[in-house]
């Protein structure tokens, strides 16, 4: 229902356009903030190697080249005593050598760059495994939210605690939709993940978009932790508003890395399944 704000925006613009509103690019002086380290990377329960990408922030105006942070020392260790020293195989791209992500473990990322130390710790949530999947056709007549087409569902056992998921749907390698959602196991309240009558203990992944006949659909389900969910939701809002008169008050998404580094170090589980629609 954040649409409320969008419609308000539309109205302001309508009134403005009716009365000669205009938009123009302007010159503006912005401070140059200190250069910050930007961390982007994650550990999953899939096969390694895992990538940590390090870049640097820059001044707002000017070319959008983001310097890679080269020559940093990056290690990831877990709470089972494993330590992996990452190797920089490309400028700013550091890869693990032998670490295997395991659900339930805590992972600590330590970075030493330009004589400054950064650190971040995340815990990988419990894994979800999709054990059934099928598709069905809906002609779209029953509900205003449903377009006619084929829908795909995948079933999994939920932990009944408050979990956060990210669902992606791909057709032929193109990601069609990405949804992040909390889910506390209570079927009545959540309307992103649905429950099917008669099967009470399983929950179903439903990307809520319609596919066409003959599509090869791959659905990826990640179980993420709350900090990750908060970070990415905040990031998408920040991208949407871009400052200005509409939208929420501009703030940086809540990074989980120490010493003022930007970005996010994530640990999540993944599972995927593929359905061919006939």
């Amino acid at each position: 229902m954040k649409n409320g704000l969008k419609y308000w925006q539309a109205m302001v613009l309508v009134l403005g356009i009716g009365f000669s509103a205009c938009e123009k690019v302007i010159e503006i002086d912005l401070n140059e903030a200190d250069i910050k380290l930007v961390v982007e990377g994650n550990v999953t329960n899939g096969a390694g190697p895992y990538l940590i990408k390090l870049t640097q922030s820059g001044a707002y105006f000017g070319e959008s080249t983001y310097n890679r942070a080269e020559g940093a020392s990056v290690t990831i260790s877990d709470d089972a005593g494993n330590i992996d020293i990452l190797v920089e195989q490309d400028a700013g791209m550091y890869y693990t050598q032998n670490l295997q992500g395991t659900p339930g473990r805590s992972y600590t990322l330590d970075i030493d760059f330009n004589d400054v130390s950064y650190s971040s710790t995340v815990k990988m949530p419990v894994a979800v495994v999709v054990d059934t999947s099928f598709s069905y056709e809906d002609d779209g007549s029953s509900s205003l939210f449903v377009d006619p087409g084929f829908y795909v569902l995948g079933g999994f056992m939920d932990t009944k605690e408050l979990d956060y998921y990210r669902i992606q749907a791909f057709v032929g390698g193109d990601s069609l939709v990405e949804v992040r959602t909390p889910w506390d196991g209570n079927p009545v309240e959540d309307f992103q993940l649905g429950a099917i009558d008669g099967v009470s203990s399983q929950l179903f992944v439903n990307p809520f978009i319609a596919f066409k006949s003959q599509d090869t659909v791959t659905i990826m389900l990640n179980s993420v932790n709350k900090n990750s969910y908060d970070y990415f939701v905040s990031l998408s809002e920040s991208k949407a508003s871009g400052g200005g008169g509409f939208g929420s008050i501009p703030q940086n998404p809540p990074s989980n890395i120490s010493n003022g580094a930007l970005g996010f170090f994530d640990a999540y589980t993944e599972d995927q399944f593929t359905v061919v629609i006939d």
Binding site: N31, A33, Y60, S238
Partner: peptide
């Protein structure tokens, strides 16, 4: 207003 920018997930993010 932003005082800088960086890249994340392949996109420009205001700082």
């Amino acid at each position: 207003f932003p005082s800088g920018k960086y890249e994340f997930g392949g996109e420009t993010i205001n700082f």
